[in-house]
Amino acid sequence: MVTIGAIIYEPGSTVRNKTGGWRTFRPILNTEKCIKCEICYIFCPEGAIYEDEEENFRINYDYCKGCLICSKECPTNAITRVREEK
């Protein structure tokens, strides 16, 4: 059933759409090298970088499209890249 006026009542429902499958390269974040400058966090177009309970930054591979901005911008080279195995 299409809603009246095609209104979408569920905010943020694109979370159902896992865009991780788009990736060609996978960024890998080395927590040891991370200085928590938040640069990767703020520049991620997906909002796919988050803090875990220990306040370490992690990459959510469900959504990461592999643009590698995080890897490029990281000031301590804490984010490396590997080709995705298909």
Partner: peptide, 28 residues
């Protein structure tokens, strides 16, 4: 009840009507 912009109930009005829903909107 159906359509009002309100930060306390964030809804999306005027989305992309993909072929899977557009025709139904016309019928409605």
């Amino acid at each position: 009840k159906h359509a009002y912009l309100d930060p306390d109930r964030p809804i999306t009005q005027g989305p992309v009507g993909v072929p899977e829903c557009y025709m139904e909107t016309r019928k409605q």
